[in-house]
């Protein structure tokens, strides 16, 4: 076993190593061959290879010294307009000294940029096209303003197909000399969807127990790694234990810093997946929508969301009365 983060260690170095997103990889290889890259948007769920594809493209294009020609910015750490004005501009306008006349700016989590910053970015992109190409990575391309979208070549990343997910994890397990049981692999896929980063992190954490990785280990890791278990909170509330549900909510917000807007989005998703009679779901959607709106107006996320939890308690009670 090696002692660094496996998700980083096994990140593909070149487009040829990328196992998934075949069509996208083909188009990117084409960019390398023609030595020309347009502005791009890489959109898709987390852990599907957006950042990896951008890095591989850069390495294939510039060779091992690629770091000199690219810059990575994370919009969620520095999303203000000033970053665009200063950092991005400074990087973009200086002409590259290499044989390729442009540099590449990778803007990660670009959907977290403010609208103002995006407007500023749009002008920068236009002005410095000659010297700099932008790759914007985002979970939702919808959150990127229209003028930027129209200047970029869009790429839609999707979750890894099951076979490729399995093959990749087995490959890592083999290299690291850990035994990954079939049931463990199934559990990882179930817990992580197709999010490869999450899957590899889970695999590594599971391997720290120094025993064959079974389903039980995987589930226990998932439970400990993600206390922000919205589903459990909903269940607790529907069963009628408001105080416990509020405690879980408080933990998510205070201890793990989960944003209220993320929590309510998850509640909304979970409600439609939950095993409750269909007509109640739309009733709950109304309550969720109302609180979602109040979240924007209000001052305190926990207060707003706990009002929603109280509605879940009430609905759970009404459901039991009705049946």
């Amino acid at each position: 076993m090696s002692f660094e983060m496996w998700a980083e260690k096994y990140r593909p170095k070149s487009l040829d190593e990328m196992v998934n997103q075949k069509e996208i990889v083909e188009r990117l290889k084409n960019f390398v061959e023609t030595r020309n890259v347009p502005h791009c948007i890489f959109a898709g769920p987390p852990g599907t290879g957006k950042t990896t594809a951008a890095l591989c493209l850069a390495r294939d294009l510039y060779g091992d010294g690629y770091r000199e020609f690219i810059m990575e910015l994370n919009a969620s750490d520095e999303r203000g307009i000033n970053v665009v004005r200063e950092t991005v501009k400074t990087f973009a306008r200086v002409r590259s000294v290499g044989e390729i006349p442009f540099k590449i700016m990778i803007l990660d989590e670009a959907d977290n940029m403010t609208a103002d910053a995006q407007q500023a970015l749009r002008r920068t992109m236009e002005r410095y096209t000659e010297t700099c190409r932008f790759i914007l990575c985002a979970n939702y391309s919808g959150k990127i303003i229209e003028p930027i979208q129209s200047r970029c070549a869009p790429f839609r990343f999707t979750f890894l197909p099951r076979e490729e997910h399995d093959r990749y994890l087995q490959f890592i397990a083999e290299k690291e000399n850990v035994t990954l049981l079939k049931e463990g692999l199934d559990a990882i896929f179930e817990v992580c969807g197709g999010d490869l980063r999450k899957a590899i992190n889970t695999l590594q954490a599971a391997s720290s127990f120094n025993k064959p990785i079974d389903a039980k280990t995987v589930y226990s890791i998932a439970g400990r790694a993600h206390p922000a278990d919205v589903q459990k909170m909903i269940e607790t509330a529907m069963k009628g234990d408001f105080i416990e549900a509020r405690k879980q909510l408080r933990n998510m917000i205070q201890k793990y810093g989960v944003a209220g807007s993320d929590i309510i989005r998850q509640i909304h998703t979970e409600i439609f997946r939950a095993e409750i009679p269909e007509p109640w779901k739309i009733k709950l959607a109304d309550a969720i929508g109302e609180i979602d709106y109040r979240l924007v107006q209000g001052a305190d996320e926990e207060v707003q969301l706990s009002a929603l939890l109280a509605r879940l308690v009430e609905t759970g009670y009404e459901m039991r009365m009705a049946s």
Binding site: M5, E8, P46, T51, D77, D108, N201, Q204, S208, R224
Partner: peptide, 22 residues
């Protein structure tokens, strides 16, 4: 973030929990 091409915010939320287990 310095090693893993991920924002510090997301690393704190998504990677750190696994480190804690390890």
């Amino acid at each position: 973030k310095r090693k893993c091409h991920i924002s510090a915010n997301r690393a704190a939320k998504e990677v750190l929990p696994y480190l804690r287990i390890i």
